[in-house]
Design a protein around this nucleic acid. Structure first.
Lengths: 341, 341
DNA sequence: ATGAAAGCGCTAACAA
DNA sequence: TTGTTAGCGCTTTCAT
């Protein structure tokens, strides 16, 4: 067992032909090179017989193409990102691409290093939910003609393809819904960031309030992997703001934590406080009462992202206009935001 | 911008030395090769200045090492697996390894192909939660001296390292807990598989019942990504078995689905039916009542897995005994399994 | 219609 | 102490 791995030369030698010929045949250029059908057949047969597989490293070194996509998400263990990752992975593999992935944890420095690693490994394209402060690195990537597709958020000063949702309207719409149900003291609890998606959510929320002459109240949380770190700030916030009658959560992470706090404080939903959150999840459907959520079109997001990237990867002509795709969310109204008044 | 990427020769030329010297210095063999500290300094300075990065493909081609780990999980969007993936990824990157990952969906054929892809890409080691029927492929990997670490389950007929939990005892213990609370008609609802973890869970469940002269009732579900496919079988099962007073779910996937069905059927927990499930999750803590769960030691699992693999990767001497690590779960008793009698 | 040979960027045995 | 050189396995130009 474990015989030395065969190389293209071995194949060529066994058939007493040159490795060039084998290479042409294996790369589907037999026609073009007018290699006899008979020879093609023999080569293919032997290849199958001995289970020869070209060494992809050598191939990559030579061609400069690695058939690898670098996928950088905020956190692979977040349900939103892992769902997207799974769908992207599927399509990528089906198209002959492998995925190298990593989580950025919104850490700029870490992301810079990761980009370097990816670059170093000659990934053919990048998919990322970028943290702030890496505009330069991305620009440098683009200058090297690397395709980069962003999702969930984008960098306003960098011209790339991206796929996002209509964050501002989604937040606006959700807030209007709460207002329509008679709530007047609506807080927004969200992790703090200048990233576009967050900025837009805050904007939409404030706009709805303004239109109704209500006062915004935003509680910004730090970005943290550990929900435990959020318990304390959320608890003290809820304890100090007794007049809040509704909350909009900016992400599922924030909401899950917020719900736990409300549970432990004995706050009744929606009687004491109504709840709406970004991102849907089984947990919200199972919750009593069920939680109203702003559901992102996960499949559509993943689909658009990978389609755009595969397209760019296909064409030599990479001088197409970049695409900015904005998808729509669905406000799923459930018990947590029904008026109790 | 986007100047042609520098190679080691460029560095050597600029300094009028040979690329060998540069290579030695960059690989920390300057001492050993007694290269003058002064030269080392000059090289390092230039390298930093121009931002030279060795081409890792070329390096891999030459050394046969890719500094890549292949990670194959059942489904990256499952919270259990994505949590493990995140932790493994972290440690891997900290140790200079990248991760190529994929989801197997328990599909044997797909997994075979993926193993070939990984092998093709010269990953240095494998981490996987293996589906059934790939014993041969793994054996072949082992014969080629590739380190393979399994987790969540293992293949009884293949001698590899693996990290699992004490499934049988965990199921036994949970079932005993239900019995202790006075429940007598305890069903096990789980996705069907001959994989070790599932077989052991069923075994533990049955053993507890037998000890108490109770009758087992196992509802096997198909493996499916889409929870919708489980709704129907679970619903009809619950409708037809009116005398069930408690359920043990085999995975979080099954439980989440089961809870939805119970919700829609208006089954009260624990009054009508008590519930315990494998795998803990925020959703269960948020559920009303909170769901008793068998919590797996995620950090410990990930930690052991990656530690074992990194060790193997480090040593040239790979002829150490394989490790079989069995970790313990924690039965977190909550409202869903408290006696109502 | 097929082959020889150069070279992708790197490491390491061997020379000097 | 440093350099020469032969590959790793593949693609591709240029010959034949």
């Amino acid at each position: 067992m474990s015989a030395k791995r065969l190389s293209i030369v071995d194949i060529a030698d066994k058939l007493n032909i040159s490795k060039t010929t084998v290479s042409f045949i294996l790369n589907g250029r037999a026609q073009e090179k007018r290699i006899s059908a008979e020879l093609v057949e023999r080569v293919l047969k032997l290849v199958k017989e001995v289970g020869y597989k070209p060494n992809s490293l050598a191939k990559s070194l030579r061609t400069g193409k690695s058939n690898t996509i670098g996928l950088m998400v905020e956190n692979i263990s977040d349900p939103f990102f892992s769902a997207i990752a799974r769908l992207i992975e599927d399509r990528a593999y089906k198209n002959g691409y492998k995925i190298i992935y990593c989580s950025t944890y919104n850490d700029t420095q870490k992301t810079k290093e990761l980009i370097n690693m990816f670059r170093d490994r000659h990934v053919d394209g990048y998919i990322m939910s970028p943290p702030e402060g890496i505009e330069e690195d991305i620009t440098s990537l683009l200058n090297d003609h690397m395709p980069v597709v962003m999702f969930d958020r984008y960098l306003p000063t960098v011209d790339t393809d991206y796929v996002v949702i209509n964050n501002q309207f989604s937040a606006y719409n959700a807030t209007q819904h709460l207002i329509g149900q008679g709530y007047k003291n609506i807080a927004l609890i969200t992790f703090f960031s200048n990233q576009t998606q967050m900025a837009d959510r805050v904007k939409g929320y404030k706009m709805a309030l303004k239109e109704n002459d209500l006062k915004p109240l935003v509680k910004e949380l730090p970005f943290t992997l550990n929900k435990k770190n959020l318990i304390e700030p959320v608890t003290s916030f809820l304890k100090s703001k007794k007049n809040i009658d509704a909350i909009l959560f900016g992400t599922n992470h924030d909401a899950t934590c917020g719900l736990k706090v409300m549970q432990s404080l004995g706050i009744s939903i929606p009687n004491d406080i109504a709840v709406v959150t970004f991102d849907d999840s089984d947990a919200y459907e199972l919750h009593t009462p069920q939680i109203t959520s702003i559901a992102q079109p996960i499949e559509e997001i993943a689909d658009n992202v990978i389609t755009i990237l595969l397209n760019k990867l296909d064409k030599k002509t990479e001088f197409e206009k970049n695409q900015a795709i904005t998808l729509h969310t669905e406000l799923i109204i459930r018990g947590s935001s029904k008026s109790s008044k």
